[in-house]
C-alpha cells in the first residue's frame, strides 16, 4: 500500500513538477529556429507562479464552473497514475487501456465545458472546434493502442509494454506508433492542430475568458498532459532498452520523452495552422491508416 502511494506520488510529481521544465526546453528550441534567444528554461515556472498570484476573475457562475480548472488538472494527474513511467503504472490494477482512453479524453471535455459556459462567442466556437478535434483524434489514439493490445493479447498497458520490450519492433507497432505520435501532436495543442485555441482567430478559444489562477491550472494541465501522453508513447511503442532498474529506466524514458516532444515542437514551428475541416480530414486518413496496422497485427507482423 505504501509503495502504491509512493508510486502514485512519483508519477504525479513527474507530471506536475517536470512538465514546465519540458515546456521551457521546447520554447528554447522554438526560439532557436526563430533566430531568437528565447526566454530562460525556467520561464514556465515563473509564468505559473505569476498567474497563480493574480486575482481570480470569473465570467461564469456556479460550482461546476468554479471547479473546472482543478478538475481538469486532476484528470490529467489521474492519467499520470495510470501511465507507466519507467516502471509499471502504479494504478495499473484500477484500469486497462480502455480506462486510460476515457481518462485521456476527460481533460478535453472539461476544457470544452469551460469554453461553452464562459459566455463568449470565441469560447463557444473554440469549444465546438475542440469537440470536433477530439472526435477525430480519439479514434486514431484508440486504434493505435488496440494494435498493442492485439499483439500482446491483453488490454492491460503493463502487458503491452512487456510484450513490446521483449519482442522488439514490428511493422504494425511502428504504424500504430506513428498514428499515436500524430494524435499526440493534436492532443497537446501544437501546430498544425492548435485549431481550438487559434490565438489569431479565436484569441485562445475555450480558454479566452480564463485568467489568473484558473488559467494557470489549465496551462499546467495542458503541459502535464503533453508530458504524460509522450510517456505513454515511449513506454508502449519504444520501451527499449528495458534494464529492469527503475531509476535507469525512468531516466531513459525521460530522455526519450524529451526527444519525442522536441520532434513535436519541431513540427509545430515549421507548420501553419490547418483549418478544422482540413484537420478532421487528416485524422480521418490517419485513423484509416492505423487500421492497416491492425491488419498487420492480425497476421503477426
Amino acid at each position: 500500500m505504501v509503495w502504491l502511494l509512493l508510486g502514485c506520488l512519483l508519477n504525479v510529481a513527474i507530471a506536475l513538477l517536470l512538465s514546465p521544465l519540458y515546456e521551457g526546453l521546447l520554447r528554447k528550441m522554438r526560439a532557436a529556429i526563430h533566430s531568437r534567444v528565447g526566454p530562460p528554461v525556467t520561464q514556465p515556472y515563473w509564468d505559473l507562479l505569476k498567474l497563480l498570484g493574480k486575482e481570480d476573475l470569473r465570467s461564469g457562475g456556479g460550482m461546476a464552473y468554479a471547479a473546472l480548472p482543478a478538475l481538469t488538472l486532476a484528470s490529467v494527474l489521474l492519467l499520470a497514475t495510470l501511465t507507466p513511467m519507467g516502471a509499471a503504472a502504479p494504478l495499473a490494477f484500477a484500469g486497462d487501456m480502455i480506462v486510460v482512453l476515457y481518462v485521456a479524453g476527460m481533460s478535453a471535455v472539461l476544457i470544452m465545458l469551460s469554453g461553452m459556459t464562459s459566455g463568449s462567442p470565441y469560447g463557444s466556437v473554440g469549444s465546438s472546434r475542440e469537440m470536433m478535434m477530439a472526435l477525430s483524434v480519439e479514434p486514431a489514439l484508440a486504434v493505435s493502442l488496440a494494435v498493442g493490445a492485439l499483439k500482446a493479447g491483453t488490454l492491460a498497458l503493463g502487458g503491452m509494454v512487456d510484450f513490446q520490450a521483449q519482442n522488439g519492433p514490428s511493422v504494425s507497432m511502428s504504424i500504430a506508433g506513428l498514428a499515436f505520435f500524430l494524435a499526440l501532436q493534436a492532443q497537446s495543442g501544437k501546430l498544425p492542430f492548435d485549431i481550438a485555441e487559434a490565438d489569431q482567430e479565436l484569441m485562445g478559444g475555450p480558454l479566452v475568458e480564463q485568467s489568473g489562477p484558473r488559467l494557470a491550472l489549465f496551462r499546467w494541465a495542458l503541459w502535464a498532459k503533453q508530458l504524460v501522453l509522450a510517456f505513454l508513447l515511449v513506454e508502449v511503442f519504444l520501451p527499449w532498452p528495458r534494464l529492469g532498474i527503475p531509476v535507469v529506466d525512468l531516466l531513459a524514458s525521460g530522455l526519450k520523452v524529451l526527444g519525442v516532444l522536441l520532434l513535436v515542437a519541431l513540427i509545430d514551428v515549421v507548420n501553419p495552422r490547418l483549418r478544422i475541416d482540413q484537420a478532421m480530414g487528416y485524422f480521418m486518413r490517419v485513423g484509416l491508416a492505423s487500421v492497416s496496422a491492425l491488419a498487420f497485427a492480425v497476421i503477426g507482423r
Binding site: 501546430l191 498544425p192 492548435d194 489569431q200 507548420n271 501553419p272 495552422r273
Partner: peptide
C-alpha cells in the same frame, strides 16, 4: 501573413 496562420517561423525569419 505567417503570424496570422500561426506560422511564427516565417514571421521571425522575414523580419530578420
Amino acid at each position: 501573413a505567417g503570424h496570422i496562420l500561426g506560422f511564427e517561423t516565417v514571421l521571425m525569419q522575414t523580419w530578420r
